[in-house]
Structures are given as C-alpha cells and as structure tokens.
Simulated scan of single mutants.
Amino acid sequence: MGAHSHDNIDWDAHLERLRAADDFLAPEIAEVVRRLLLPGDRSVIEIGAGAGGTAAIFVESLAGNGAGAQLTIVDTAEQLLTAAGERASDAADGVAVHTVRADAAADTLAEEIEQAGASPQADLVYAAFVVHHLPDQLAGLRRLASLVKPGGRLAIVEFGLQTRVLPADVGLAEPGLEARLLNAREQWFQQMRAEMEGSVRLPVGWPKAMAQAGLVDTTSFSYLVDRPAPMDESGRAAALRHLAMLRRDAEERVPAEDVSALDQLLDPDSDHYAAHRDDLSYLSASTIHVGTRPA
C-alpha cells in the first residue's frame, strides 16, 4: 500500500492474486474513476500501486482528457511499482506514467515525488485502502492533501461494509461461521493499529478528518460489488481469496471447530472445498471520501 513493509512476500503469487482481483473488480473501479475524474483534469497521483489495475483505468480516462496528461504511481515496493507502471503504460498512448518509490508515512513524500521527476501536485490524489495503515492517519491525510493542486481533490477509499461470500450455514461448525471470522478480522485490525509504532487514534469519521486536514466540500459515496450465486470461476476465485485472508487472522481468535471448518472450505482435496459450491456469492461495499483543497 505504500505505507508499510512488503518483506518476505512471494511476489509472483502476490501479483497473480492482485491481478485477478483487479480483473474481478474492474467494472466497479471503472465507474469510480468515471465519477472522480473531471474533464479538465490532466494529472493524477495514485498512492499504493497494487498490480496496476486502477492505474490503467486512470490512464485510459486521462487519455480522453487531452494532451499533457500524467499519472504518478507511488509505493514502497519496487516489484509492485514495476508491474503497475508497465500495465498503466500499456493502457493508452499520450499519458506520461511516472513510478515513485516512496512511503506515504514519510514527511518527505512530496519531495521524493519531485526528485523522481514527477510533479509533486496533481488535480486528483487517489489512495485506496492506504490511510488506515498509516500510524498517524490525520497527519497522513494532511500529507496527501499537500499533494493536491489548489482546487483539486483528494479521494480516499476505505472500508464500508465487510465482504461476505458464504451462506449463513455452510454445514460445518455452528451457523454463522463467516460472521465469527469477520469479527476475528476486526479484532486483528484493532490490535494491529494499537501495536503499530507511533500509532495515533482517529476518533472521528473520515469526512470530518478530511476537513481537519484542511479540505473543504467533503463528500462521500459508496460502490457496491454484488455478484449473486451462482458465480463464475472468477467470482469463486475471489471468494476463495477472501476466505484465505480471513484464515490468516483466525487461529487464535475463533474456536478450533471454526478453524477446521475454514480449512476444509479452502482445501481443494476436501469434500467441502468452497470452489465446488454453487451457493457462494460476493457482496461488499467500499466508501470513497472526497475533499477539495481550497483554491
């Protein structure tokens, strides 16, 4: 995400997962970009590279806004920057793509972007699921707001409603397995925030925090990912990625019966392998908060 370490990662596998997620969510992200990007915008800074799916959509949209457009992608992970830069550069002609290895938690962020040969300010600064990883989230918002041209916008994407993929009763463990796993995930997140070095609480909602960061006319909207059962192969794969993420946080936070049930759902050799079910669905909502830097 550009704000924390990416050590000890199997990059080939990680990029494969990120690319699959990009493809799965492409229709919804294209609509988000359509709503955020104004006809007069010529520059975007994206904080957090991922595998470049969103960057590619930004490039395609910027290419239609006229000459002189540029996209700057910022992340701490060289592998992600390379992959995202290549995908974005291939998306359309006429848009300059810059990749900058920098940390969104560092006060030198704007300076590092400029040193890399990119403009340190843009019409739109976009950060998806990044700010909640920063130790001081309000300071992070102020830092990102400083990258916005006067009259431009900062857009951050944060969680709305937790993703759900399973029926209430999967026939393993007690009914409500996914609800318990999601609660464990929330416990993990709160512990992660509490133990983060330099962590500062943010006891206000995102729109108010953006106003405290100096932005005005703050608004919010949500996008829904709604793929009902039965899903195609890409949908089932997305559900499995979601369940695998929940597994990482489950060991010490849910009963052993729940861990065993989840392991069976994730095991291709199990009779209960989730990918063989025709009742998986994918339902989630994320929220975009947008604030304008005073002209």
Results as ranks from 00 to 15, higher is better:
Q191P: 06
R180T: 06
D217A: 10
M231E: 07
A209P: 02
L202G: 00
S199W: 05
Q187C: 08
A229L: 08
Y223C: 11
V204T: 09
V225C: 07
S220R: 00
M196G: 08
E195T: 08
P207A: 03
P207T: 00
A211E: 15
R180P: 05
E178L: 07
G214H: 05
Q187S: 13
R180H: 07
P228Y: 03
V225Q: 05
R180I: 03
H242T: 12
R201L: 11
R247K: 04
A229T: 01
M192V: 09
L224K: 04
D232V: 09
L240Y: 03
Q190H: 14
D217I: 01
A213Y: 00
L240N: 10
V216H: 06
P228K: 03
E174P: 10
E233L: 12
A209G: 07
T219M: 14
V225R: 03
L243N: 01
L182M: 13
E186W: 08
G198S: 03
G176D: 15
E233D: 15
D226A: 11
E195W: 04
R248L: 14
L182I: 15
V204Q: 02
V204K: 00
A237Q: 14
Y223Q: 14
A229P: 03
A211P: 06
S199F: 10
A229S: 07
L181C: 09
D249S: 13
G198A: 01
S234A: 15
L177P: 04
L202I: 00
S222K: 07
V216Y: 04
V200N: 01
R193M: 12
E197G: 05
M245S: 15
R180A: 02
P207Y: 00
T218R: 01
A213C: 01
A209E: 00
P175R: 08
G176F: 10
Q190N: 15
A229M: 06
L224G: 09
G235F: 08
M192L: 15
N183E: 15
E186Q: 14
A237L: 13
R180S: 04
R248D: 14
W206D: 00
A209F: 00
L202S: 00
P230I: 03
P207G: 05
E174G: 08
P175Q: 06
R227C: 12
P228A: 11
R201Q: 11
P203V: 02
P230C: 09
L224S: 13
E233Y: 06
M210S: 04
L246C: 05
A239G: 14
G198F: 04
T218F: 00
Q190A: 14
M245E: 15
D249N: 13
S222R: 11
R241D: 15
D226Y: 13
D217F: 02
R241H: 14
V204C: 03
R193G: 06
W188A: 12
L182T: 14
T218N: 01
E174Y: 09
A238I: 03
R241K: 06
L177H: 02
M192K: 10
L182W: 09
R227W: 09
S199Y: 12
D226E: 14
R247M: 06
R241C: 11
A209V: 02
G235K: 01
L224A: 11
S199M: 07
L181P: 12
V216K: 04
A238S: 13
A209W: 00
G214T: 04
Y223D: 14
D217W: 04
Q191C: 10
M192G: 05
Q190M: 14
N183R: 10
R227V: 15
